[in-house]
């Protein structure tokens, strides 16, 4: 299942397979969770400025509680500008409220995400003693070596950090 989710995200599934899977995502909470986690991992790897945070459940909850306001058309038109201004303010407030709430509800949610992003950040080549050999072997045939000359070897001269290698890449078995 995880494999097909990953395949779907990469656009490698056929249309009917994708439809089946999307159906399952809709119906099955576990699959939906996997789907969200895979996107989170993908986002963390791509290191965007904003990371995906699932607010949909909470937004839905809030919307359900929201009273339905019925107003005649004429009155709405008259107060258009003011309503717009108020609703903008209200939705801003709602967004921050929801964001704040989600932090309150799952206090470990945000730090966990931050941690994940941190860990997924690629770190320096200290993985295996021979990583540098791959770099140099690659460099020799790279056109960028033509541009920079030895400067391109600086990546291999540089001593890098001592952080541990990244291991939390999604690994479908």
């Amino acid at each position: 299942m995880k494999q097909s989710i990953s395949a779907l995200m990469d656009g490698e599934l056929f249309e009917d397979e994708a439809e089946n899977l999307l159906g399952e995502v809709k119906d099955d909470a576990t699959v939906r969770k996997n789907w969200a986690v895979y996107h989170l991992i993908g986002d963390a790897l791509r290191q965007p400025d904003h990371i995906h945070c699932d607010l949909s459940a909470k937004v839905r909850e809030r919307l359900r509680e929201e009273p339905v306001v019925l107003v005649s058309r004429g009155r709405v038109a008259k107060r258009k500008i003011r309503t717009w201004a108020i609703s903008a303010a209200a939705s801003l407030a709602a967004v921050s409220a929801v964001a704040w709430m989600s932090l309150q509800i799952s206090p470990e949610g945000a730090p966990k995400m931050a941690m994940q992003q941190n860990a997924a950040r690629p770190v320096n080549m200290q993985t295996r003693p021979s990583s540098n050999d791959y770099l140099i072997a690659h460099q020799e045939f790279s056109p960028s070596a033509e541009m920079d000359g030895s400067a391109s070897y600086i990546r291999t001269v540089s001593y890098g950090g001592d952080e541990a290698p990244v291991k939390n890449i999604p690994n479908e078995k």
């Binding site: 320096n124 080549m125 993985t127 990546r155 890098g160 990244v166 291991k167 690994n171």
Partner: peptide, 14 residues
């Protein structure tokens, strides 16, 4: 040995 590592613009994945 699976893993992604990088140095500057150079990325390596095993």
């Amino acid at each position: 040995v699976d893993g992604l590592s990088s140095r500057g613009a150079m990325n390596l994945y095993h």
